[in-house]
Design a protein around this nucleic acid. Structure first.
Length: 490
RNA sequence: GCCCCCAUCGUCUAGUGGCCUAGGACGACGGCCCUUCAAGCCGUAGACAGGGGUUCGAGUCCCCUUGGGGGCACCA
């Protein structure tokens, strides 16, 4: 009989959650949803010195952006609260007390200066840095004396001198460690706050966490936790360590790899659905061909046994492809909705607000499949909105064209376009295609020149459709401007 | 230095002893389409780190080497 699935995402509020954290959150969330279990948010704020103002809001925002809703947490409550570790100090302290009384832990009065010195010595001698266990053997009398002196103390776990601590990891399988090589690590700091090791064990037990799904970097501290579960007579949860995410240099992803905060990607114009699809494939796969997963697909198919053991490099190129793909899947209206705030913020002030949605509906189909990032939208559509465009002279003269031939092209086009009763794609094509032949030019030369003249860009959506949306007046006016520019060049 | 983990194309990965002359995706390159750019379609190059075993047979199992990563705080 296995217990109900309860997993947690337990970030510490020390900054903006980065990609790696959020991938861990994703995997936990998927496992919970797949298993019909609970996804719990717990804030591990046990380090008073590293607390960052506003970090918790960023955690909410990051989860929210990806749509990873949590069932229990500091803000939504739940039966296992409080969900902020700083509000659970009593639990940790009594656990530590119990361990001391049982003889599984002891007070240590060594100063951090002494410890630092000791470690320096050890590394000089090329020895593994470890606590020398000075305080482990203190007699009751010695302890009383230290207390009387008013010395602050930490509580250290008393690692057995012999034996092996092992566990079965859901991803890595059987892993074992020699107790003799483990350090008497601190479980309670001198300020009365627990370390991660104690806090996560106490909380995971009290919150009835069934599976601990966390990054690989925790693998080597897991025996400490296993020992703690045993000493406290708790049932150990199952462990699933997942491979880490690396930067291009294969080192643990960190700030120096550029944008690493999840929300940076939101700001850069990525879609959360693309991000999820990309992130889940970093360390998990369904089979040999499926690449695209909707949220429901993932919930349906996600499983721990398909998590790989190898670290994955965060490769933004593939993310870009996913993003383009998901943008293309949106309907015109959906894309407008997502892009509207960006346009509102980025389009020049003299463009009328609110931005004309009907007009956008004509424009979007032209640029939709060209968009890779939402933030590119302004660059793609501004020439539709702006009144006067700026022509670059050298762009006005295309490949295999000269100043004179460009002028000729525009002058020949003008009357044809002016005479058009209907300024739509078909009519435009009907007059412009023959015109190229008349002028003895390739269609590309004619259309290219007109493209730059009407849009101000060398790269734009198909000419006729663009001109139709732009409208006759704007096109004629812009061609006129282009002619002036070309003629005034000498 | 010690401990732990990992090892298939540049990257993400499929592969759980014969279905592998190793599959897919991104990227790269070439082509088609074509008024530019995209998108789409077609195609090409590209990997089992090395060495020993085990086996009739090893990318798949074992060992060693090498390489990479992670951990070794009163941080999580």
């Amino acid at each position: 009989m296995s217990r109900p699935v309860r997993v947690r995402f337990a970030p510490s509020p020390t900054g903006i959650p980065h990609i790696g954290n959020m991938r861990t959150a994703l995997f936990n969330w998927l496992f919970a949803r797949h298993s019909d279990g609970k996804f719990i948010l717990r804030i591990e704020d046990t380090d008073q010195t590293r607390k960052v103002e506003g970090a918790i809001e960023k955690i909410y925002e990051s989860l929210g952006w990806l749509g990873l809703e949590w069932d229990e947490g500091p803000d939504v409550g739940g039966d296992s609260g409080p969900y902020m570790q700083s509000e659970r100090l009593d639990y940790y302290q009594s656990a530590a007390k119990r361990l001391v009384e049982q003889g599984d832990a002891y007070h240590c009065y060594c100063s951090s200066e002494r410890l630092a010195e000791m470690r320096a010595e050890q590394s000089k001698r090329k020895e593994p840095p470890r606590y020398d266990r000075t305080c482990r053997e203190l007699t009751a009398g010695q302890r009383a004396q230290k207390e009387a002196e008013g010395l602050a103390s930490v509580v250290r776990y008393k690692i057995p001198f012999e034996g092996i601590t092992s566990f079965d990891d859901e991803v890595y399988g059987y892993v074992e460690f020699q107790n003799a090589l483990l350090d008497d690590y601190v479980i309670l700091k001198s300020d009365g706050f627990p370390t991660y090791h104690l806090a996560n064990v106490v909380d995971d037990h009290m919150m009835q966490i069934s599976h601990v799904i966390r990054a690989d970097e925790w693998l080597s501290s897991t025996p400490k936790h296993v020992l703690l579960y045993k000493a406290l007579e708790y049932n150990s949860p199952k462990y699933a360590h997942m491979p880490m995410t690396f930067g291009k240099d294969k080192a643990k992803l960190s700030k120096r790899h550029g944008a690493t905060a999840l929300l940076d990607y939101k700001d850069m114009g990525y879609l959360p659905e693309a991000m999820i699809n990309f992130l889940v494939l970093l360390g998990w796969s369904l089979d040999d061909k499926t690449e695209i997963f909707s949220r429901d697909d993932l919930i349906q198919h996600f499983s721990l046994d398909r998590i790989s053991k190898t670290g994955a490099v965060f490769n933004a190129e593939k993310l870009n492809w996913f993003n383009g793909y998901y943008i293309r899947q949106l309907t015109t209206d959906e894309l407008i909705e997502r892009v509207m705030p960006l346009l509102d913020a980025q389009l020049p002030a003299d463009v009328k607000r609110p931005i004309d949605t009907e007009y956008l509906k004509e424009i979007i189909p032209l640029i939709h499949e060209r968009l890779k990032l939402l933030t590119e939208i302004t660059e793609f559509v501004s020439f539709f909105f702006v009144d006067d465009i700026e022509h670059k002279a050298d762009e006005l003269i295309g490949k295999k064209m000269t100043q004179d031939s460009s002028i000729a092209v525009l002058e020949a086009s003008l009357p044809k376009l002016e005479s058009l009763a209907k300024f739509d794609t078909e009519s435009l094509e009907q007059v412009l295609r023959p015109l190229a032949e008349e002028l003895g030019l390739k269609t590309g030369q004619l259309f290219g020149t007109l493209r730059v003249a009407t849009t101000g860009k060398t790269v734009a959506p198909p000419l006729f459709q663009t001109m139709e949306v732009l409208g006759q007046d704007k096109c004629l006016k812009r061609i006129g401007l282009a002619l002036e520019k070309l003629k005034g060049m000498d």
